[in-house]
Write a protein that binds this DNA or RNA. Structure first.
Lengths: 218, 218
DNA sequence: TAGATTGTTAATCGATTAACAATC
DNA sequence: TAGATTGTTAATCGATTAACAATC
């Protein structure tokens, strides 16, 4: 689920979700015009509370901000990137090379976020041996051995809901430490394995519930 | 962002996120064995607090549960589906037919969740006129007219970050009431338009931060 | 009847927001 | 100096959890 208990270097999960938005916003600014950036400006741009942004930045920034001027934009960008782990790359493999799996394998943006998807796995003979964006698609029985050999830490699950737990078990056996789960199911894993759920159905439910309420109000 | 303020029929956003997991779990059970299902059982299966599940179910269920036995599984399933709006279909269009856009256009599961993606739009001449899974890809200048004519309420944005705000403005102009945004940017919209963000970069940040902390502990 | 489960009311916990002194 | 912004401490708000009476 979305809400977890832990804190990361004094930053709550909710705050962690906001950081990429800060980063994106600051990066989008004209460097010449905004060599410095302040919490109130970011707050206004992203529709957030000023104090909230200030607290988030305080937790992330190394050098801190200066009264009246705010933070040096360049420094804040690199502090955010550092904090979000964009500089240290994690190796990942993906299981389930359907439409979504292919989309994730093809997406170039993950490398800038510190994730390198090495290859895909699938059970379908028809796509085994092919490659997607230069990334090889291999049969499931090679998974364990390859993950161990290359000490892969992250597994991405894009298989149908019914197969997700089985694939999850395989990944755990292969020494995976974190799972990015796109199947709309709760996965059972040992304590030391992390699961991050990306549940489109749940997201859609929030959207449609919101929409229904909103249309009612008219 | 994930957290919003509103309540939907007494259900918080956090609770709303849990409902699809309940639904999926109950559906996965053997009907013959589990004609009735109780909050404690669901809680155990999904690693949640018993009282939390009970409260969620109480808010969703029409007939309520019976002490000792729990809820009638069939009724609970249909109550959940009703509450989540899976029975009333919203029409949607998608803008940005790249890898992710294609994946979403091709995904069959959304129909069961009350979302019907009618067609895709893109600016790339090479794919305009083709179709993905039987869904036509049209040029952007047809967007406004078609959305009005078919009274489409939902727009899905799968364009690059830089173009997202511009597309968003187009959608608003086309009378869209809710936007499912896959670009990692904050969108500016009028009050009456809803935005549901699906930020993979943010999700990835949580995962990788978790992983780093977890590996440190060793 | 005994026991499991429901539904509700109260306590806890944590994130957001407000207030304010410090500082460039 | 005056004013904007920082960083911190306290107040508020809401979700989760605990406690307990009601009931099949």
């Amino acid at each position: 689920m979305r809400n977890q208990e832990k804190d990361y270097s004094g930053v709550s999960v909710q705050a962690l979700w906001r950081l990429p938005y800060y980063l994106n916003y600051i990066k989008s600014l004209d460097e010449a015009k905004y060599s410095c950036i302040s919490a109130p400006i970011i707050a206004k741009a992203l529709n957030l509370n000023e104090v909230q942004v200030r607290k988030d930045l305080a937790a992330v920034s190394n050098s801190g901000g200066k009264p009246k001027t705010g933070y040096v934009a360049k420094e804040l960008i690199s502090d955010l990137e550092e904090f979000l782990g964009y500089n240290s790359v994690d190796e990942a493999i993906l299981v389930g090379v359907g439409h979504l799996g292919k989309a994730l394998l093809s997406y170039q943006g993950f490398e800038n976020c510190g994730l390198n998807i090495l290859m895909g796995f699938d059970k379908d003979e028809a796509i085994i041996g092919t490659n997607v964006c230069g990334k090889q698609i291999l049969p499931l029985d090679k998974l364990k051995d390859l993950c161990w050999r290359m000490s892969v830490n992250v597994g991405i699950i894009t298989v149908p809901a019914k197969e997700a737990q089985m694939i999850c078990d395989m990944l755990v056996e292969a020494g995976i430490r974190a799972i990015w789960n796109f199947a709309p199911v709760h996965l059972h894993v040992p304590d030391y394995v992390l699961v991050q759920n990306e549940n489109l159905a749940a997201s859609l439910a929030v959207l449609s519930k919101n929409l229904t309420e909103s249309l009612k109000e008219k």
